[in-house]
Simulated scan of single mutants.
Amino acid sequence: MRRLLFISVLMLSTLLPTRAAEPLTVFAAASLREAMEAIGAAFEEETGTAVVFSFAGTGTLARQIEAGAPADVFISADAAWMDYVRDAGVVEADTIRDFASNAIVLIGAKGSAALEPAAADLQERLDGHRLAMADPDTVPAGRYGKAALEHQGLWSTVSHALAPMENVRVALTAVVRGDTPAGLVYRTDALIEPGVTILYEFPEGSHPRIRYLAALTGEGDRGAASQFLDFLAGPAAQEVLRSLGFVADNG
């Protein structure tokens, strides 16, 4: 009787659907949306583990994680916010790694003429309107943008005429809609948006190196989350990043 019961249970278990792995939750900087969605799809195809993303300004995400938001992986657009969550003890310090870089550009509406952003030229282009950029006090793209403007001697020209936004994609949208004639965004943002033109690309060295960093939060399935970090540095993810204009970093 026991043998028959064991066989029945075994047969029933083979008929039940296999429980899929729990999806990973990744909090990622807004500027990475297209890249992360493509990388997440490739990761799921390779491993069978789905990835659910939450995109926002890096500072917003960092504070959410600090407050206990259930993320498995945090991806920051700068070292300062990664240091913040590390010091708060909500990411695992030994898992932090760089995986990509970017550049800052000045954009205008599609078809706008290129600009050599000397103070007078930029003032003339703004023509009393505001310059759209991510908030330089809290958002990585804004901090990089402020540094680039300071390096070029332009900060004093525009600091009184800023339209600070909650993240870089909001600044991009403001230019697309015509709310402002110019904005500062990442080069990758400009490349994926057909409604804008790059007016000027700030030279290398005009701002701190833009660093995208990823780390585990210690929540959920550490094995799958570690797999995702390794995948970010692997050839498939790096090729996605390069195809979208990021500077990929295999190291």
Rank of each mutant, 00 (worst) to 15 (best):
A69C: 07
D249T: 08
F228T: 08
T95Y: 00
A29P: 00
L244S: 11
G108T: 09
P181H: 05
E45L: 07
A190D: 00
E46W: 06
H160M: 08
T180K: 03
T197K: 13
N102V: 05
W81L: 07
F99S: 01
R33M: 02
S243M: 04
L232C: 06
E201C: 03
T25R: 10
A215F: 02
Y212N: 06
L16E: 14
G128E: 03
L24H: 09
P140Y: 06
H160S: 15
R130K: 15
V85I: 10
R130D: 15
H160K: 02
S13I: 14
T58K: 06
P140S: 08
V185I: 07
Q238N: 14
T18C: 04
L106W: 05
H160W: 12
D249N: 11
T180Q: 07
Y212T: 07
M82V: 09
Y212R: 04
L191W: 04
A56P: 01
T60G: 04
I7G: 10
Q64M: 12
A80M: 13
W155D: 14
L61T: 12
H129T: 09
G223I: 13
A71S: 14
A69S: 13
P117N: 02
A29M: 02
E66A: 06
V185Q: 03
P164H: 05
L229A: 03
E45H: 13
S112W: 02
G48E: 13
A215G: 08
V158E: 03
A224H: 13
S243K: 06
A182M: 03
Y212P: 01
S101R: 06
V90I: 04
G68V: 10
P70A: 14
L122W: 00
A113G: 06
G142W: 00
R125K: 10
A233F: 01
A93M: 05
A237M: 11
A174S: 05
L241N: 10
L229N: 06
D121T: 12
P23Y: 03
S206K: 06
L199W: 01
